[in-house]
């Protein structure tokens, strides 16, 4: 007899006895009904695919573990599993509400993960590279003060002590360092914005 015409009960029995093709026939026979049942509850194709898959994984496990009790109600049993998984899905969703973007409003325009995207990250590293090059072009005394202040986060008192100059001199060198940096940026037409 063509296995396609076997009853669900017979196919299930064959499947439990190791005939994998029986599962293919069972799925082909009932997939549309089960799939549409799930879809009619969740109205989302991706979620439906997931629940459909989980339903059959549960069916397979139960059958292979010998926990299925044949009462001639295979399809209602599968539908019950699908129904329970749909309920689980809604419970989870309630705990973690899902926001659906509409045509007029996209949630990602007001929230972000705070990290830079690849382009912004590239621009930032380019800016850092340019600044380092510009700093290297400053006269030694100005470069030292600027590095101590900006990179080492030292106070002008500490800078003056470390470079053996007065605070006013250190301040003056910092001022000239910034003036010269601006000049260099202007001369080389460098854009330092992200």
């Amino acid at each position: 007899m063509n296995p396609k015409y076997l009853s669900d009960a017979a196919l299930v029995s064959n499947y439990i006895n190791g005939e994998e093709t029986s599962l293919t026939i069972i799925i082909n026979r009932h997939q549309q009904r089960i799939y549409n049942f799930i879809y009619s509850k969740v109205y989302d194709r991706d979620v439906t695919e997931d629940i459909f898959q989980d339903t059959f994984i549960k069916v397979i496990k139960t059958l292979k573990l010998g926990k299925y009790n044949e009462e001639g109600k295979f399809l209602p049993w599968v539908m019950r599993i699908a129904h329970n998984l749909v309920i689980d899905f809604f419970r989870k969703n309630k705990r973690m509400p899902k926001f659906n973007n509409s045509k007029d409003f996209d949630i990602f325009t007001v929230i972000s993960d705070g990290s830079l995207n690849a382009e912004a990250e590239l621009i930032r590293s380019q800016i850092h590279y340019d600044i380092r090059n510009l700093v290297e072009q400053l006269p030694d005394d100005q470069r030292t003060v600027l590095k101590m202040r900006m990179y080492n986060d030292m106070s002008f008192k500490e800078i003056s002590e470390n470079t053996s100059v007065s605070i006013n001199t250190a301040l003056g060198r910092m001022r000239y360092a910034l003036i010269n940096l601006r000049k260099l940026i202007k001369e080389h037409n460098i854009v330092l914005t992200n």
Partner: peptide, 27 residues
């Protein structure tokens, strides 16, 4: 009215995954 949904079928990938899982699952 919700869109008609009486003729939807799962993706072939989903079916394949289920069948592969079945073959791989042993007790």
């Amino acid at each position: 009215k919700h869109p008609s949904n009486n003729h939807l079928n799962p993706k072939i990938e989903t079916i394949n995954l289920i069948l592969s899982y079945s073959k791989a699952f042993k007790v």
